[in-house]
Amino acid sequence: METQNRFKPAVVNITSIENEPCRRLQMEIPPLIDTYDIAVNDPKVMYTTENIPTKETYDNFYDLASGCKCTDLCTKESGCSCIELNANYEFQRDKTSNTIDSIQNNYELIKKYSPVYECNKNCLCSAFCGNKLVQFGPRKGLRILTESELSKLNKQRIKDLKGSKGAGLMTMEAIKEGNFVCEYAGEVISKNEADLRFKRQEEHCLPNYIFCLMEQFGENKIQTFIDPSIFGNIGRYINHSCQPNCLVIPIRCQCVIPKLCVFALHDIPENTEITFDYGDGRLGFVPSNDNEIVKKKCYCHSSLCRKFLPFQKYLY
């Protein structure tokens, strides 16, 4: 993993959910399946399959209060209240997918730059209703690459390979455009804690994994900070690219805190590194004294490489 700054704003507009009395779960939803913890041979990392709160953010982890009243599949035609918030997924081939593998391979994200609400435990719909995807866990066929393995993989396509990105994440199976890859999970921390951790990481020359999501609720702007430095999943090993093959979408399932979900931007061949763009092109790292900008080199080696890793100065 590159030693980059990942305070990345992703500004999206979200429609509020109306508050309704919570209903009990009518059909049991299969549990999230993530077996990649056995593949993470990193003593510095405590594996977590989902976002976890800190003491400062614990009170923000409350459930979504509403759910749809569909009795089987959730569609616009069925009047699904979750889909009415924003049409989420499109079925491909098999519209009655009833296994997690078939869902991950047959569901495609429709709107690539919009927030998503999946059906939740308050809904009356079936477990495989057509509007549940990321809550089942990451797709199979992903593999964490060591620094040497990733360099060897990149040398196959780049003759004059310079620099190292550290570890990375690869898919051993082909992924179709719009398919879900994995979540970028970690500790959900406060803005103050994010500032403290960032300064500490810079002082000790440690890599920064903190992701800042910016969302627009009408006139209100909300920031969510997720840090997988110590508690994280396989998503923490995804590197930056100025010409990425994936993007990150905020998705709400059971909780108002969004999941940061990685989706394929286009068809991805097997044995390919998974990447997304950490920022919008503003470059460099600004020290606490703000007198100079220290740019960090980018080693994505894409034809559109901006030469330096993104940084969002205005977040500090």
Rank of each mutant, 00 (worst) to 15 (best):
M1I: 04
M1Q: 02
E2Q: 03
N5H: 14
R6D: 14
K8Q: 15
A10H: 09
V11Y: 09
V12Q: 09
N13E: 15
I17D: 15
I17A: 15
E20L: 15
R23G: 12
P30I: 13
P31H: 14
D34N: 08
T35D: 12
T35C: 09
D37W: 02
A39L: 07
P43T: 10
T49V: 10
T54R: 00
T54E: 06
Y58N: 09
Y58A: 14
D63R: 00
L64K: 01
A65I: 04
C70D: 02
D72F: 00
L73M: 08
C74R: 01
S81V: 09
E84G: 00
N88H: 02
R93C: 07
S97G: 11
S97C: 10
N98S: 12
T99H: 00
T99Y: 00
I100G: 05
I100K: 04
Q104M: 04
Y107N: 06
S114Q: 10
E118A: 07
E118R: 03
C119F: 02
N120P: 04
K121H: 12
C125D: 08
S126P: 01
A127V: 09
A127E: 09
K132A: 11
K132H: 06
L133K: 07
V134G: 05
Q135R: 08
F136D: 10
G137W: 06
I144F: 03
T146N: 07
S148L: 12
E149A: 05
L150P: 02
S151H: 06
K152A: 15
N154D: 15
Q156D: 14
I158E: 11
K162G: 13
G163Y: 11
G163T: 13
G163I: 14
G166T: 03
K176E: 12
F180I: 10
V181F: 02
E183I: 07
Y184R: 02
Y184N: 07
A185S: 12
G186I: 09
E187A: 04
V188W: 00
V188D: 02
I189M: 07
S190V: 09
A194K: 01
L196I: 09
R197T: 03
F198A: 12
F198C: 13
Q201P: 00
Q201D: 08
C205Q: 03
N208R: 01
L213M: 03
E215Y: 00
Q216V: 06
E219W: 01
E219I: 08
K221L: 11
S229C: 10
I230N: 04
I230R: 02
G235N: 02
Y237F: 06
Y237H: 01
C242M: 05
N245D: 11
N245H: 07
C246N: 10
V248L: 13
I249A: 11
P250K: 06
R252L: 12
R252W: 08
Q254Y: 08
C255A: 11
L265I: 13
L265F: 09
L265N: 14
I268C: 04
P269K: 03
T272M: 03
T272N: 03
E273R: 02
D277Q: 13
D277F: 10
G279V: 13
L283T: 13
G284I: 12
G284R: 04
V286H: 06
S288T: 06
S288D: 05
S288H: 00
D290K: 01
D290A: 06
D290L: 03
N291Y: 00
E292L: 03
V294T: 05
K296G: 05
C298Y: 01
H301C: 08
S302E: 03
S303Q: 04
C305R: 05
C305M: 08
F308A: 13
Y314Q: 13
L315R: 13
